[in-house]
Every structure is written in structure tokens, then in C-alpha cells.
Design a protein around this nucleic acid. Structure first.
Lengths: 223, 223
DNA sequence: CGCCAACTTGATGGCTGTCAAGTCAGGTGG
DNA sequence: CCACCTGACTTGACAGCCATCAAGTTGGCG
């Protein structure tokens, strides 16, 4: 986890200091809101365990899921810009987060170069990730989108020591659809089609990837 | 311009120091590349004058325009994360940029709090902007997308002291389409339809917005 | 003046959305 | 323990939006 979190790459002494940033640990139950869009921004949250979705809601009431977040990732950073959280973060399973007041982070990043650098890296990485999603939404067809989505999940689970090929989805078809710019029926249909093609097996939220190269090809990421 | 750039909100003395960050000014001609995706990241660029497009290219060769950038905005920030530029930035008209080595920015943001804060704000703002585009690509129809696009351009021109209702597009229909997740023919058709509806007049790249409230309604942003 | 890129417009088709009906699984209460 | 109930999911039929293919127009530039 430390690899992904704000405190990576610090020497032990600095690490101890940096950990004073953590103002509180909080347990969040499934379906509980961590923060809501529009609320005053104070803290960034590092996910210790669990699984979240982030989404924004426009004036029409349309929800757009902007990301699914797992251990080691940061939540709420985008609030720096306006002083209020832009997105809403909801736990999709019982989770635990570290709450880090952003004022403290800025304070300490003055003294600890690696921390400052890491903060920048995390922000920039989020931008790069969003550009990937824009590419997906702007120019891929439904099958490509879902293939990319599954491979991305697989890869992130792998990094965390879970199975590369077998996992439970924490989100509904509708949430996947919102993230991918598809309707839930389309998501369901593409899952079925992948199963018929022998790429995966799907039993509700239980996914097993059978043919990773095949999925990669489907995703347009040959190799 | 200072309002939008990295040096906003500094007192005159700090401002003088901050300006030493500017390592060089560069003139970029129309269609010239400022930096290419994959090149080593060294500097962030602040646009002094002109107009750019940023785009990423995937392994399939598909181009996705990730943004159009005008004076006061920063280019290249997303390279912080990986050490190389992710996107390609191309001038759509003769432009002028300030080149600021990122190492210098980090250095100085150690000493100048407002600068550090501003850097974070700019990064976070980019994330928020990208989420808006994700919403647009994920859940809006063609007419809504183009209406949002025109209103956004209008608003940004207004901030810079140009006309709210009349401007020249610097980009082609294809580039607009890439940004909005549409084909160029669709962009053209929607322009024509807006014209028939009396919302705008379109003559090639010359746009005049006739009915801003009407466009807002079309964009689903009533009011 | 001619060429070419950019743009417009029309005809057609396909992907995905919409609407609808039915299935499945998990949780709750009797 | 089982029946029920509800939310999540699947599947089918159909429609609509946008992509695709194609032809023609415009405007800028050498």
C-alpha cells in the first residue's frame, strides 16, 4: 500500500513525521458517504482498505461515475481547486480511510521534498487517468470499453496481491455503465457476449477472466 | 492573464522572484508542436498568447483531443507523474509561451506559499475540468455536447476580454469532434441545425451566438 | 486559375438506447 | 425454515441517434 500512498519513498525518520499528517482513521460502512460534492474541502482521504466510487452530479441530476477507487488511492484531491469537494465518494464495501487535513499536507510538503513531489505525482496521475477515460468515452465501442475496464481492474487487483483473473465486482451494472458511458442493459449484454466468446465467465458479480490476450485484443491493446 | 497563471496572488516582491522561474519565452507558429507525447518532461508552459490543442494518441493510432488551451492556461503539467509528457500540444495559431522548468517551480514553491497553493489549484482545476468532459462524453447527446462546448468557449473568451457572442474557431470540425466524441459530419450537422434554430450563425469558423439562453437550455444548464 | 483541405449535405446502416418482461439472489419476516 | 419481496440482472424487440459512405461546395493559397 505504501507504494501507492502519499508516504512512499520517505526514509523512516521522515515517514514517522509524515504519519503525523494522519489526523484520524475512519471506518466507512458499505453505502456510506465519505464526502458529498459541494461540502467544504478540508481533508484528503487515503484508502487503507475497501472500495469506493466517486461520482459527480450535474444540474440535470445526471450522475457520472468518475472513478472506482481502491486501497492506496487518494480521494478528494480535486477539492483543492475550489475549496469544496467536487465529487461524492461512497463506499462500495466496508472500508477504512486515513483522513489527512490538506493544510497539514501543504505544511509538511514544505519540509519534506519527497512528500511534495509525491503529492504532485498523485495529482498528475489523476489527470493522466482521466485522459485515458476521455479516450475510452470518446472513441471506443461498448466491447472495447468493457474490455479495457476489466483489464484495468485486473491489473489493479494484481498490484495489490489479489488474483489477476478472478474477482468480485463491487459495483452494479448501472455504475459500470455510468463510468463507461453505457446503459446497464448494454453492460449486461456485453458481459454475456464475452462469456459466449469464452473470454470470461460471469456469475452476477463474480468475474473470472479466461482469456486475457483475447480481452486485450478486444480492448485494442494487442499484445 | 496574471489571474489565470501561476503567479497570481503574489505580492510584487514575490512576483519578481517568481518571474525568475521563467526560463525562456518561445514563439510557436501555427501547426507547430510545443511538445510531443512521450518526450521527457522538464518544463511546464504557460500560454501568454495564442491557442493550443492537447491530444493523446493510443496504441491504435486513435487521436483524442483532451483540451483546447488559451492564454493564461498551463500546458504539460500531467508530465509530472511519469517524467514524460503524456499529451501532444500543438499551436492552432501563432502563439507565445513561457517555459518554466518544473524543478524550479518545485524549488520556489518551497519558499513561496502562494505559489505552491496556486500550483495545486491549477492541477486540481484540471481534474475538475476533465470530470466535466467525462460527464459530457458519458451522458450527453450531440446537441448538448456542442452547446456546452460553445458556451464554454464563449465564457473563456469573455474572461479574456473578447466578445462573448462572436469568435473564430481555431480548430477544425474534426478536432471539435474528437474532443466531443463525435464525427466531423455530426459536428457540421449540429452547427447547421443550431443555425436553423436561430441559436447561432455559422460561416465556416466564424461563430456568432444569437441566443445564449437558448443555447444554455440546449446544454441542459437552464438559467 | 487550379488545387486541396475543410466543410456541408444526403442516403443508409448499425450500435446502442429504450421499453418491457422475466429471472435470479439475497435478505427479511412470519 | 421457508416464503416472500425487492433490487439487481438478463434477455428480447424495436427505435433512434449517430457513424459511415459518398458526392458536392466553399475558401484559401500557391
Amino acid at each position: 500500500m505504501r507504494e501507492l500512498c502519499l508516504t512512499s519513498g520517505l526514509c523512516p525518520a521522515d515517514l514517522a513525521r509524515a504519519e503525523t499528517m494522519v489526523h484520524a482513521r475512519r471506518r466507512i460502512k458499505r453505502n456510506e458517504v465519505l464526502f458529498n460534492g459541494g461540502e467544504t474541502f478540508n481533508s484528503v482521504f487515503a484508502i487503507r482498505t475497501g472500495f469506493f466510487k466517486s461520482s459527480v452530479i450535474d444540474k440535470e441530476g445526471r450522475e457520472q461515475v468518475t472513478g472506482f477507487n481502491m486501497s492506496g488511492e487518494l480521494l478528494g484531491m480535486e477539492g483543492i481547486g475550489t475549496g469544496q469537494y467536487e465529487a461524492t465518494a461512497i463506499a462500495l464495501e466496508d472500508s477504512e480511510v486515513c483522513m489527512m487535513p490538506f493544510a497539514l499536507i501543504e505544511e509538511m510538503s514544505h519540509e519534506l521534498r519527497p512528500l511534495q513531489r509525491h503529492l504532485h505525482t498523485m495529482l498528475a496521475r489523476e489527470i493522466v487517468r482521466d485522459h485515458g477515460v476521455m479516450m475510452l468515452l470518446g472513441s471506443m465501442r461498448a466491447e472495447e470499453r468493457l474490455a479495457v475496464f476489466l483489464l484495468n481492474l485486473s491489473q489493479r487487483f494484481t498490484v495489490r496481491g489479489y488474483s489477476q483473473s478472478e474477482f468480485y465486482l463491487r459495483m452494479t451494472r448501472e455504475e459500470i455503465g455510468s463510468y463507461l458511458g453505457l446503459k446497464l442493459e448494454t453492460v449486461s449484454r456485453v458481459f454475456s457476449k464475452f462469456q459466449e466468446s469464452g473470454l470470461v465467465t460471469v456469475q452476477q458479480k463474480h468475474i473470472r477472466i479466461i482469456d486475457i490476450p483475447g480481452l486485450r485484443k478486444m480492448a485494442g491493446q494487442n499484445g
